[in-house]
Every structure is written in C-alpha cells, then in structure tokens.
Design a protein around this nucleic acid. Structure first.
Length: 586
RNA sequence: GCGUUUGUAGCUCAGCUGGAUAGAGCAUCGGCCUUCUAAGCCGAGGGUCGCAGGUUCGAGUCCUGCCAAGCGCACCA
C-alpha cells in the first residue's frame, strides 16, 4: 500500500515538473507514514512541506496542487489536506480486508520476508566466562541476542548464532585453583579459603564430583600447598599475589597433566550447565567457539603476524603493542605481555580475523554495556587487518538491576551471592522472563523487579497477550459447543460486513505486521515486536468486550471469526518468534 | 578529568529516525459480569519531555553548553 501511494505521489511530482512548478532535476524523497490518529486517515505524507521551499510556494497551496494532480486509485477513498500541509490518505477498508485472507493462506509464514536476501550474518551473544553459572545479567543478553537472531532469520538473513568461550586466561586458572582447594576440603584438609577465589556453591559441587570420581588422587597435604605462599589480603597481604601463587603451586604439585584434568573437569561441568540453561531458555547456538582453539591452532600468531607485516606493531618496555591510537582508539594496546603471554585482546583480534575469514556479510557482537570502551580497539584491529569495519556492528545491552520490592539485590560472581538465570526462570517462568527481558530497549537501563515479575497476578504483561490468544481459542471452542462450524468461505465473502470501529482498526493493525517485523529486525529492536503484540492484544480485548462474535447472522459471524482467527495467527506468529508459549486456555 | 549511555506522568517504560492535541502499563478514583473466560473492558485525574540556548514552516527527537545518574578509561577477562 505504501508503494502504491508512493507511485501516486511520484506521478503528481512528475506532473508538477511538466507544469514547470518544480525543477526537473529535483528528485524528492517520498515519505509516507502511518498516521497516529484515525482522524488523519490511514497514511500521511509530508511531501508538500518538503517541497514548499524549492517550489517557492506555501505548503498548503502546494498540497492542493499535488492533490489535484494525483492520479486516481480505487483503493484510495479520500485525500485530505490537513494541518500545515499534510496530505492524508484514506484507504478503502475493503482493500485492507484482503489481509485476512492472506493471513489465512500464509499461516505461520505470514509476516516473514526475504529482505535479508540470504546474506550471511553472525550474531555472537552471551559469551559469558565459563567460571560459573549464568546470572540474571546474562539472561538479558541471551533473550535479546536470540530475539535479534530470530528476527533476522525471519526476514531472510542467513543467521549463525555463536558463543565465544573464554576457556583460557587467568580467570579460568583461578577457577581451577578454587575447585582444587574445595576438593582438598572434601578430602578433609582444613585451611582458610582464599578471598579472591570463586566462592560459589557450584564450586563445591564440582569439587565433590571430582572427589567422588578420583578419591584422594589429587590430594596434597595443606602444609605443602600453602608453604611459602604470600599472605592473603585479610591477613595484610595481596589477594592477587596470594591466588596467583596458589595457582602456580597447584600446577607444580599436581603436574601439568593432572592440573589440566582438574581445569577441564571444571570447564566441562560449567559449560554443560550453561548450555543446558540456555537451551531450556530457548537459546541455541550453531557454534561454541573456543578461545583456546585460537591459541592451539596458531591463529593468534597468524593475526599478530599480519598486523606486524602491515606495520601496526611495535615493542616497548618488553611488551608488544598494537598502534591502535592511529586508528581511532584512545591509546595503544598491549597484545603480548613482557612475560611473553598474549593478552585477551590478542585473542580477540584473532577471533575477529577468524570471523572475517569465515565470510560473513555482517558480524554482530552483543556485549554488556560495560565493554563499550572496548569497541574502538576491535574496530582498529579489523581496520588494520584490512577489513571493512562497517561489517562489524556492536550492540550493547545495559545491565538489568535486580530488585526485590524496593531493595536492590547485590550481585557478584566471585562472592557467589547472585541470582542465577535458572533461579529467575524457575521463579517467574520461561515466558515472563523472555518477555520482560525483551520488553525494554536494549540500551536502556532496566529495573527487573523480581517481586513484580513473580507475582502471578494481572500485573504481568505477558499474560495480557497470551490471554488474547487463549480467548480466541475459547471462542472457537464455544462455537463448537453450540454445534456450529466455521464457514471460512462465507466469512471471506462477507468481510465487507466488518464495519465496526474496532474491526476496521484491527484490520489496519494486522496489515502493519510485516513492515513492523522488518523494522524490528533491521534495527535490532525486538521490543517493537512486543509493543506491537501488546497493542494488537489490546485492540482485540476491546473488540471482544464491545461485540459478540457468535451471532445469528451467519455472514457477520463468519466474517468476525475469520478476523479473530487472523488475529490469533498473528499473535501466535509473534509469540512463537519470541519463543513464548501460546496457550489455548488460561 | 576524558569517553560513553541515559534523563519523558507518583513508579516502570514507549514515542515509528524532524511532524499534527506527547502515549501505555502499574498505582489512584469512578463505572461494566443473567450474554463467546472480569488474567478483560469503558471513563477520570496526573507532564516545564533534566536545564538553557541554537538550527527551521515545525524539536521529546538534530547541534552546543551546563546539571544529574550508570558504565568504561590494565601488560584482568
């Protein structure tokens, strides 16, 4: 419909040109919008406001001229000039009724499109360090990331979902040491647990499993373990030196192979847990990409070699630096430490090089907002590798601040005092969790009130949308109980009997679904889909309260049932896309 | 201090990339179940869109400067 109006307006512009009112060279952008207010018709264009200046006319006069020159079209019942010079189009409801038939024909396919044209897009999200279970902060990234990926797939992109596993680095060593120390406790050793180690209950669980499997195989007397280890912070020492020394001690006492075993046991157990957690949350990946793999297969060396060859590396103070400040970053960054170890950033350069080599048309990274300062250096690295940095899109997700009523819930992985995603899912349910997370714009700070979300009452907006779906199912059941059957053909033939305000409004709303979906996908804003569904549900509830569907007049009855079923289909399509259930009864 | 994100109703948030009288939910107040599910509907009150300038036919939206909050500014990940 938009395209049709656009061509009509273009016709008018051409006519203006031949009349000499507009310069031939002028090619105005035709802007057509949905109106906000029904009184302004269905669509509006600000064309004459845009052209007023080049045409040297006042906008209202120009608008009259445009309307006069506008080619006729049967679908357009009325054209009005309003306000400062808007041209409002009123569309024949009959032309819009086609959407009901279309929804019925296309079913689950309705709304899907091919604007993505099969372009390869990678969406990397969550990628939390495997040092513990996912918490509620990760939940938002998970819900948002998977919604973005699913939306892109719905409009025809070839989407690859990926989780980057940081299975290397100091944090992982701290985890391994934490597990080993808890294991020693399981064996009966007694000592003070380091302040900087991971203290979560899950660490004990992993240690207990290890103890069950291996008995005392990895046991060493506590006197040996703590011999000459620098003091921990509470004892007046340094917590980092304390834990680092313990990591080294673990490696020497256990030996490389055994240390790896403990390390791997922890990693595996946590990764399995994360994968299961996300799977249950409706979040699935095509690829779990290992950071260690990048080290083992020489990718990091290769990436650094390429940067060096292009003259972007230099050595200072014993470390190797990447001259990122020449490429937009605020300062240069170390890629190889003076101790010879690569930094996390070096891994990330290699990772992005790998992504580029895999031939994606677009690379989307979804990060927590606390990583935003990291973007310029990754961009710089991609540029230095000779890639088109426009291919990279970084979407930031603000953290969700958790409340219980008025009280903020403090969280820290290290101290172990946090609410896990799993706890949240169990408390508020899958549907409410996904809905709540995606309801807000991603870069908006979010207050997640557990009390509110856990309250099973009407305060939960997800029920509102689901209830609309269930209500329609209920109407259909009612129809059956009354011994009536739908006559879809008759309904389709009788669509012009839908003349009530709510009916016209619903039909118009249904026609918007595909364009809304496309916009939500291309702009990475799944909350638009949520808003749409809430509006559609509201219009349906309003309709339901104002009018009876199962009426004696067969034509009206079937037309209304066809409309209701179209609404049901679109609600289901939207909810399914968000992986939220569509209950038939509530 | 520098960078970045945010500031809209009592609270939580939308606001269709610059359009018409700024919206919704919750909360408050008043109505609607003999009728397809009241987890619903109808109505009312509630606003200096953080503040001040600027850009233009037109600004919650764009530009500048302040104010406030979150986050970031490692040879951590």
């Amino acid at each position: 419909m938009k395209q049709k109006l656009e061509s009509l307006l273009l016709g008018a512009v051409a006519a203006l040109k031949t009349q000499g009112l507009l310069e031939q060279a002028l090619n105005p952008i035709i802007n057509i919008e949905r109106t906000r207010d029904q009184q302004h018709g269905d669509f509006a264009s600000n064309l004459s406001l845009m052209l007023a200046k080049p045409a040297k006319m006042n906008p209202r006069q120009l608008a009259e001229k445009i309307v006069e020159l506008l080619p006729a079209d049967p679908a357009v019942t009325k054209v009005e000039i309003a306000g400062p010079g808007f041209i409002n189009f009123f569309i024949d409801p009959k032309a819009q009724y086609q959407i009901i038939r279309k929804i019925h024909e296309q079913g689950k396919q309705f709304g899907l499109s091919q604007v993505g044209a099969g372009k390869k897009v990678q969406v990397e999200f969550v990628s939390a360090n495997p040092t513990g279970p996912l918490h509620v902060g990760h939940g938002r990234g998970a819900a948002y990331g998977s919604a973005v990926a699913d939306l892109l797939a719905a409009v025809g992109f070839d989407v690859q979902r990926e989780y980057y596993v940081n299975d290397a680095g100091r944090q992982m060593d701290i985890l391994a040491a934490s597990i080993w120390l808890r294991y020693l406790e399981e064996c009966g050793e007694v000592f003070t647990f380091p302040s900087n180690a991971y203290r979560g209950e899950y660490v004990r669980d992993i240690a207990a499993n290890l103890h069950r499997q291996a008995g005392n195989e990895y046991r060493h007397p506590v006197t040996l373990v703590f011999e000459d280890i620098p003091a921990d912070e509470p004892e007046g020492g340094n917590k980092d030196e304390h834990i680092d020394a313990l990591i080294e001690r673990a490696k020497t006492l256990l030996g490389a192979k055994e240390y790896q075993f403990v390390f791997q046991a922890g990693l595996n157990e946590i990764l399995v847990d994360i994968r299961q957690d996300l799977g249950e949350f409706g979040v699935n990946y095509q690829e779990w990409f290992s950071e260690r793999q990048l080290m083992d297969d020489g990718s990091i060396d290769e990436a650094l070699k390429r940067l060096d060859a292009a003259g972007h590396l230099y050595v200072k103070d014993g470390a190797t630096w990447f001259a990122s400040s020449k490429l937009g970053d605020e300062k240069d960054r170390v890629v190889v430490r003076d101790n010879g170890q690569g930094t996390y950033f070096a891994s990330d350069i290699a990772y992005h090089m790998n992504k580029l080599d895999r031939g994606f048309d677009q690379i989307i990274n979804i990060w927590g907002a606390d990583h935003h300062g990291y973007i310029p250096r990754v961009r710089a690295a991609m540029q230095a590798l000779g890639a088109d940095t426009d291919k990279l899109k970084v979407l930031l997700v603000q953290f969700a601040v958790l409340y219980r009523g008025d009280e903020q819930v403090q969280m820290s992985t290290r101290s172990g005092s946090f609410v896990t995603l799993r706890q949240l899912r169990n408390e508020v349910g899958q549907d409410a969790a996904r809905f709540f997370y995606v309801m807000r714009k991603s870069e908006q700070h979010m207050d997640f009130d557990l009390k509110l979300a856990t309250s099973k009452s009407n305060e939960n907006p997800v029920f509102y949308v689901q209830y609309a779906h269930a209500r329609i199912c209920s109407v259909l059941r009612q129809l059956d109980e009354k011994g009536l059957a739908r006559n879809i053909t008759l309904g389709d033939e009788s669509l012009e009997r839908l003349i009530e305000l709510q009916e016209i409004s619903l039909v118009s709303h249904l026609t918007r679904y595909p364009e809304m979906l496309e916009k939500a996908a291309v702009q990475y804003e799944p909350h638009l889909l949520i808003n749409y569904l809430r509006e559609l549900a509201a219009e349906f509830h309003s309709y339901y309260n104002a009018h009876q569907f199962i009426v004696d007049d067969e034509a009206v009855r079937n037309a209304r049932l066809n409309l209701s079923c179209a609404v049901k289909q679109v609600l289901a399509n939207g909810l399914n896309l968000l992986r939220i259930n569509t209950p038939e009864a509530m």
